[in-house]
Structures are given as C-alpha cells and as structure tokens.
Design a protein around this nucleic acid. Structure first.
Length: 862
DNA sequence: TTAGGGTTAG
C-alpha cells in the first residue's frame, strides 16, 4: 500500500541498475524537475457512465480497479465527472475515427481537465497511425500531469517506446507495470509481452530475457517476442533453441513464429536457411501466409536474386495466397532489377485491382521500375499520382531522371522537394551527385559533395564510393585513388563496394603497389574477403603482373565459384602458363564446378598456346554435348587462333566460312595475325579487307598491315583511314608508361624532349649489344646517327632504357603500351633481358609479354 | 491488449 501511495520511491534513491528498473529521478532532461505524484487536488477520475456503456464489462472492471491501484485519489465516495469532459473525450474519438487528427488534438489541447480516458483516446489516435514519436511525447506529459496508464494504455505506450527506441520511458513504464501489478496474472500476459518486446526492440536483450524468465505465464506471443529479440540481434542459435524449447513446453510455433525466423534469415541474406525453414513450416502443418512469402521475395531481391524472387512470388500465387500491396511492391522491385517491363506492367494492373496502387509503397516501387526500364514518362505519371509522397518517392524519381541523363529535371525535383516538407536525406544527395558524375559533370558533383554537410547531411561510405566509381568511370584513375586515400584519412570506413569500384582501375602492370595497398586496406578494415572481392583481387594481381599473389588469394578463397576459377585460369593464360591453366580446369571439374562460356574459351586458347590442335578442337566440337554450351563468337576466335598459330590457315578460313554466326572483327583479326605470322600475303590481304569492311579506318588494321609489310617487304593494300579512329579515346596519347619505385613515367613515340640521358643510355645499351641490333633489323634506327634521327624510336625502347638505368637490378621492369609491340621492340626486349639479366614485363592491348633470359612468354606469337 | 513482411543511391 505504501508503494501505491508513493509510486516513485526510486526518485529519492535512484538505483540505475536495479531490475526491474526503478523510476528515474528525471524522466527526461529538464522535463521532470520534481518527483511526480498524483496530485491531491486531482479531479475526480470515476469512469463516466456514458462511455462505460460503450466498453466491455471486462474493460470496465479493469479500469475501475486500475484507478484504485494507482492511488490517484484518496479513498472515498466516487467523484462526479463534469459531462463536458466526457463530451470532449467522445469528440476526440469521433474526430480521430473520421481522420481529423488535427481537430482531435485541438479538442484535447483545449481540455481544462484530462482524465485517463482523454489521454487514452488521444494517444490511441496517434498509436493507431503509427505516430510513435507523438505517443511517447504525450505519454511523458501524461505522467507529468500525474495520470498513470492502465494495463491497456501501457501496452500501447510500450509499443511506441519499442518503435521510437525510447528505452528510458520504456524502463519507467516497466516499473509502473510491476508496481501496479500488471505483470503477474494470466490476463496480464500482453503487458509482459509488450515490456519484453520493448526491451528487445531497444536492443536490451538481457532485460528482455529477464522479463521472459520471470513471467509466470507465457503465451505464444511471449515466445514469439523472445525469438524476435534474438533474431534481431542475429543470435540465430538462441532463437532456434527457443523454438525447440517452446515445443518441449507444449507451445507449437505458429505462423508468426515461423515468419519471425524466416524473415530475419531472409533479411540477413541467408536465403537457403530461410527456404529450409519454409519447408519445416509447411511440414509442421502451418501454411505460409502473405508475410512469409513477402519476406522471402524481398530477401531474394536484396540478395540480387530477383529471378528467384519472382518465382517465389508465383509460388505464393499458386499456393492460393492473395498478394497485397507489400508483396506486390517487392515483386515490382524484382522486375525493376531485371528490367522486366511487361511483368512490371502486369503487377501494376494487379496493384490497381487490389487497390494498392495509390499506396505510397507500391507507387514508389512502380516509379523505380518504370524509371529503370527507361519509361521515364510513366514513372513521372505514377510519381505525380502518389498522394502523399515520401522520401522514397522523391529519391526514386530523382534517380530516374538522373539515370536517364536528365540531370536538370532531377535537380529541379531535388530543389523542390523540401517545399513539400520532405527533407533531403543522404540518399537524395548521393543520387544527385551520382547523376552528375555519371553524366560527366564532375564539377557539379564535387560542388554538391562539398555542400551537403553544410546542409546538415552527413556523408556516408556510399557518398565516397560514388565519387570513386564516378572518377574511375570517367577515366580519372589517380583522382579515384586520391579520394580513396582521403576517405581513409578521414576515418571513413571503406566497404566492399569501395574496393570493387577502385580495383579495376589498377588492374595493370604499372599499379601493382596500388593493388597491394587496396588489398592491405581489405585486411586493415577487416572487410570480409567475400567472393566478389577475392575474385577482383585475383584478377587485379594477375593483370598487375603478380601471378603468385593471384594464386595466393585463390588458394585462400572462402567461396570459390565459376568466376573465381575463370579468373585464375585466365591469369595463367595471361602469364603464358597454359599447362597450369589446363591443370586448374581439371581440378575445377573434380570439385564439381561446371565450366561456363568463358572457361571454355580459356581452355581452347590454352590448347592453342600449347599447340594441342586435336584436344582444342575436340573441346570446341563437344562443348554443346558435354556442357550444353553453344559455341559463340569468342569460341570461334579461340579456334581460329588455335588453328592459325599452327599455320593451319586453310582450316581456319574454312571454319570462319562455315560458322553459323557473322564473323566480327575479332575473328578476322585473329585470322590476320596468323596470316601475317606465317607470311601468307594473300590471306592477310583477304583478312585486312574483311576487317576494313567491318570497321573502316580501324587503326589496328593499319598497324597489322604495316607489320605484314615489315615482315614480307611487300606492300599490303588496305583502304586508308576514312573514318575517325575507333577503339581508343580521342584524347588518349599513343605511347607507353613505365613504373619505377611507385612512380609512373609516360613516354610517347619519338618524344625525346628532356630525355637526353635516357637516349644516351639507350645508345650505350645498343653499343653494348653491338651487332645483335643489326641482326634484328633496326630499320631507321642507327646508333651512330645523331639524336634527331632517333625520333622514330618506339617508346618502349626508351622506357626499357629508362627502367634499366633507374631501377635496382632485382626489380622487374613493368611497362604498359597503348599499341601492340612491333617485332623490332620485341626482339630488343628479349636481348636486353638476356644481356642485362633483367625481367621485363610489357603489356600491349593484346598480350602480356614476360621477357626473361632472352625469351618471351608469348613465344613470339601475339 | 502482445508477436512477423516493404519501397530509393554507390
């Protein structure tokens, strides 16, 4: 009784770590200065008869008892309630039911005296609309005014605390519930459950579990709530233990239990377990409902498995479960990912049929779907018809315009949205920045990037990723790397998208140290070396000339898939190790991984490099039967290369002639290379003409023709360039780059300004190698001639000379070239590698040449 | 009167 008279004993002696918690000394900073007690002058609280009649008998009973328990007024004869208050409370309910929340609030605010019923009506009006912030704020005011919630209202407020993440108020209400005796009896199970859920949702699982253990009675909801708590904290093991425990105690899991588990596994990306649980659910005789299916559909969409998501949606329909707005929205989102306009339209009609089309959720998915499918007008129409647009609506429409290249329209919405009381969030800014950078307006993108924090929006990892990916996309690789370093210096943690965005920019010979730095960053930030990152690293290490590191990443790969195998097989091909590539192919098959299109191209190429014509041809001929893969252009290219290398030009030509696909320039290029290598001028002419017909003015044709001329001494008649150069960017400088001690030096053909020392070095090298240079045919280059006459020298010779004189002996010389190597330079590099005992790596657009001890890994065929 | 599902950017 003492407790009832002094409902806040802890105010005098706060003990913060007590369980159940005591009332805090202050409910909120500054909100509650004094201990709150029921005021002795509080107006009478007897339930008005008129409203009582509308309530159930049980409710009536509970209400009167709760008022007595609260000790809100001294015992005595029931006091009269002024009829005006009763009428006002009724009016709040009427307004609220009619959707006039503002009017309801006006009545409430104007009341001179507010009893528990008035508070319940007003709080209920907010709670039913999910306006949990308002519920929490009102609840605090209510307690401050000395009114305490009954067992019904307390559950509503606890629910609001759970959603609004208000652990402080939640603890206080727990204390109220304990002290007022709402937690002990069978009929109080819902209150206990609400307390439990409040702790679980606010992340205090220890308290949730204590409530759970103390509950004298538990129902299905109790178990569900506790399981939910563990699922939310990703403690699947404990959640599954509870599932077993509830069954042992005689409570069979219901549809909500299964849905809780399935949805949390689906959200976490563990779709296989979610599917397994779906099976168990069906086996136990519980039919999956629309929530179960929606969890699976959306989980699959998030895991980039949209095709499966749509199959799942169909399964739901076949099971006779009618989709609602949420499930349709998820399915539309799957269509958006797959750009399935027709299926998206079908779902649109279905949304109209079930009346969810004006629902903001379906509307948002439709805007996104139409925009991604390129139907920007339809997207705009849906957007304009959404009655209460939220942040998702605006962001989706802005993204739609930006992706379609209409940055002006996107920016118009970006500026306009705040006039509609929708605050721009980090995604809005990111979308706009991404739109500008993707459309080549880097300046505006960086401007917005600089501005956003002054508008109170904090940049996140995605913001940085957009700048990095955009810089890579626009060819500003060094800028991308600077941004990457800057984000780390500002303690912004990179994620797997950062890594995947930046790696491809440095998958080349002259940036090997950058690949190592990126790899170190993966370790430093403890980023999971998941499939995609590992595959990207294998690829990057391989292309940066470091096959050993590529193999190391592959060996430690946690989840090798066909892409990982393709990466490592292609790495060995690139490094001139076709035999190892084929060994890996066998291992892959032994591990039960089926080859795909790319694997078979690599295998045919490997046989080609080894001169194993028959094995390669067999692979090509049997691929449809053995692996159900129809030969495509790439496979024909590999076959032409295989036959061409061995000089079987006639067979190669017959293959091209008989192929069911139209040969593209790559097929003819492979054939031309073979004809040039084997000195067959007639066939080289033929190939050059075909190539010119496909791609007039292709600079590669001109180069191959000149190679043929060099080789045979005969002129090759190909049409001169009539169209602009294709295959390279207009601003790209023809030349090569060499990496020395993490610095990159760029040379262009014949440009010797400021390179006097290098030219001198080159001269001395040539003298050292003496007659050898003349043996390979130096053409216009004569070491005894003056500098001016060296202008015709190819840049890789300069780069090699520069590398020899500027790097230590044990370092490899790494060079990349924009044009293919000529015979002279190739022979020169071989000689240098022997004479100077150096490893030289040169990557041209076609081949990685590894020169060592006078030999090249390409075996002189490229 | 309690418990489960959704849509946007890199």
């Amino acid at each position: 009784m003492e407790l009832l008279l002094h409902p806040f004993p802890s105010l005098l002696h706060p003990k913060p770590h007590h369980f159940p918690p005591q009332f805090p000394s202050k409910l909120r900073h500054g909100r509650l200065q004094e201990p709150v007690m029921a005021s002795p002058q509080a107006p009478p609280l007897t339930l008005p008869l008129s409203l009582q009649e509308t309530r159930s008998a049980a409710h009536r009973h509970d209400r009167s008892s709760s008022i007595q328990e609260a000790g809100a007024r001294p015992p005595g004869p029931p006091a009269r309630v002024e009829p005006r208050f009763v009428a006002e409370t009724k009016l709040i309910t009427v307004h609220s039911c009619a959707g006039r929340l503002g009017d309801a609030r006006k009545v409430f605010d104007g009341m001179r005296h507010r009893d528990l019923l008035a508070w319940s009506a007003m709080i209920g009006a907010y709670a039913i609309r999910g306006m949990y912030g308002e519920v929490v704020a009102l609840a605090v005011s209510m307690v401050e005014e000395g009114v305490l919630p009954d067992r019904f209202l307390i559950t509503r407020i606890l629910q609001a605390c759970a959603y609004a993440d208000d652990l402080e108020l939640g603890r206080m209400l727990h204390s109220v519930a304990v002290k007022r005796g709402f937690m002990g009896r069978v009929r109080d199970v819902p209150v206990g459950n609400s307390v439990l859920v409040m702790y679980a949702k606010c992340g205090d699982l220890v308290c949730a579990r204590k409530v759970f253990e103390k509950m004298a009675c538990r129902d299905l909801g109790t178990w569900n709530s506790m399981i939910f708590g563990y699922c939310q904290s990703a403690d699947w093991e404990e959640a599954r233990r509870l599932l077993d425990a509830m069954r042992q105690e005689g409570t069979e899991p219901g549809v909500v239990t299964w849905n809780t588990l399935i949805s949390s596994y689906a959200r976490s990306g563990d779709l296989d377990v979610a599917m397994e649980l779906l099976g168990q659910m069906e086996e136990s005789g519980v039919a999956p409902d629309v929530v179960t299916w929606t969890s699976l559909v959306s989980g699959l969409v998030h895991m980039d498995r949209s095709d499966e998501a749509l199959r799942c949606f169909i399964r739901m329909r076949l099971a006779g479960v009618e989709p609602n707005g949420m499930s349709i929205a998820s399915a539309i989102s799957a269509c958006a990912c797959l750009k399935l306009l027709n299926q998206g339209r079908e779902l649109h009609s279905h949304a109209i049929k079930v009346g969810s089309v004006n629902n903001v959720l379906s509307g948002n998915s439709l805007v996104d779907m139409y925009a991604k499918c390129g139907e920007i007008v339809s997207a705009q129409r849906i957007f304009s018809e959404i009655p209460e647009k939220d942040i998702f609506s605006w962001n989706s429409m802005i993204a739609g315009y930006a992706q379609a290249g209409y940055c002006g329209k996107a920016y118009e919405l970006f500026c306009k949205m705040e006039n509609y009381d929708v605050r721009r969030n980090v995604i809005t800014w990111n979308t706009m920045i991404s739109g500008y950078i993707r459309n080549g307006d880097d300046e505006r993108a960086f401007e917005l990037f600089q501005m956003m924090e002054s508008y109170g929006v904090k940049r996140d990892t995605a913001t940085w990723n957009i700048l990095i990916a955009g810089s890579v996309h626009n060819g500003y690789y060094d800028r991308a790397f600077r941004i990457f370093r800057q984000m780390q210096s500002l303690l912004m943690r990179p994620d797997y998208i950062t890594i995947l965005s930046i790696i491809p920019a440095f998958a080349n010979l002259i940036a090997s140290w950058k690949v190592r730095e990126i790899h170190a960053c993966v370790f430093h930030h403890n980023l999971e070396l998941d499939g995609k990152i590992a595959n990207a690293l294998i690829n990057a290490y391989s292309k940066s000339g470091d096959l050993a590191s590529a193999c190391a990443v592959f060996d430690m790969h946690p989840s090798r898939n066909i892409i990982s195998w393709n990466c490592i097989i292609l790495a060995h091909l690139l490094h001139g190790s076709p035999n190892e590539a084929l060994i890996l192919f066998s291992q892959m098959k032994q591990e039960g991984v089926l080859p795909d299109h790319t694997t078979l191209v690599a295998v045919i190429k490997a046989y080609g490099l080894m001169g194993k014509i028959s094995e390669g041809s067999q692979t090509f001929l049997n691929m449809a039967n053995d692996y159900n893969i129809t030969p495509e252009l790439d496979h024909y290219v590999a076959m032409v290369d295989l036959l061409g290398r061995s000089g079987r030009l006639k067979e190669a030509y017959e293959l091209i002639d008989a192929m069911p696909l139209i040969p593209n320039s790559t097929v003819w290029e492979a054939f031309l290379s073979a004809a040039v290598r084997h000195g067959n001028v007639r066939l080289a002419h033929l190939a050059a003409r075909e190539l010119s017909a496909i791609d007039p003015g292709d600079h590669r044709v001109q180069r191959l023709a000149s190679s043929l001329q060099d080789l045979t001494g005969k002129s090759v008649d190909v049409p001169k360039e009539t169209a602009p150069n294709k295959g390279r960017k207009s601003d790209e400088v023809e030349g090569c780059s060499v990496e020395i001690r993490n610095n990159v030096y760029v040379f262009s053909n014949g440009d010797i300004v400021g390179l006097e020392d290098t030219v001198a070095e080159l001269k001395s090298m040539m003298i050292k190698m003496g007659h050898s240079m003349l043996d390979i045919g130096v053409g216009s280059l004569d070491v005894e001639e003056e500098k001016e006459e060296i202008v015709g020298v190819h840049c890789e010779k300069l780069a090699i000379a520069f590398g020899i004189s500027n790097s230590s002996h044990f370092k490899k010389i790494r060079i990349i070239k924009t044009a293919r190597m000529c015979n002279h330079c190739h022979s020169f590099a071989k000689l240098v590698s022997k004479k100077y005992e150096r490893h030289i790596l040169i990557k041209d657009p076609k081949c990685l040449h590894k020169f060592e001890d006078g030999k090249c890994s390409c075996e002189d065929y490229w």
